[in-house]
Amino acid sequence: MKSTSTVFLAAFAAASLSWAGFVLAPQIQLGNLAQAKPTGSDNLYPSARPGVAVQGAEVYRSLGCVYCHSQQVRQEATHVDVILNEIGTNRTKVEAIIADLSHGSQKGKAAQIGKIAEVADVPAGEPLVARLREVGAKADLKVVATGPDISRGWGIRQSVAQDYLFDRPVQLGARRNGPDLANVGAGKPIEWQLLHLYQPKTVVTDSTMPPYPFLFETRKIVGAGSADALKLPKAFEPEAGYEVVPTEAARALVAYLHSLRVDAPLYEAPVTVAQVVAPISTNSPATNAPAK
């Protein structure tokens, strides 16, 4: 390159191209993302976090939790389970259909309620459900996500853009020195979380997480003591006459952790959750209005 202007033009072209690709394009593609109704629900998703959880998100950010905990569940594939809910009266025919599925290896086995087949997607499972319905049985299709993250219980489906709509900053995380937290709100109770923050080893013996005692106050017991005091195991108890009470920050952080949920079935991340597959046979009304 002979002139300075060529250098600048080259740098300008390269920088603006990638800027258009990774800064502008996601804005165009995702900038208008709004709350949406999950499959089979009328409540908009995601809902804004409660105020105390928003404060907790600030604690999460300020302590740099993101360096060890990701908030993104990955899945490798999805498949559809065919679940037999009711055998009906024509047991022989149902058993014949099931035997058919297994190319005869299940022949003669009694039909049982539960998963009877695994197919690639919903359209592939529908003929089977229809055949079972013809002989008086009832079956359902259940979309299941798979992958190590799902098996570890970190979530029931992958995280998608919709899940982060109200997060600021979005704390995706790049390393897992600790487990993924995208769906941690579905797991442990608040008391467990508080104990874990105060001293992780109280609940996970060989935990590698540092303790966060500065989020708690060790103070003299007055009268009957605080109702909020941590119920610590013997080895971690403070000296006699003292109790450990969570501060506002600890409470907020736990409220935030508790608000982390990624389990709404979305169009772009289909999954069947328990409430949706609830037995169809009941004729209960779809609303909460009292039955007449």
Binding site: S18, W19, F22, V23, P26, Q27, L30, G31, L33, A161, Y164, L165, F166, D167, R168, P169, V170, L172
Partner: peptide
């Protein structure tokens, strides 16, 4: 808004 922040931060 949302996950576009992450795209910009990584960019």
């Amino acid at each position: 808004r949302g996950v576009a922040q992450a795209a910009i931060a990584w960019w």
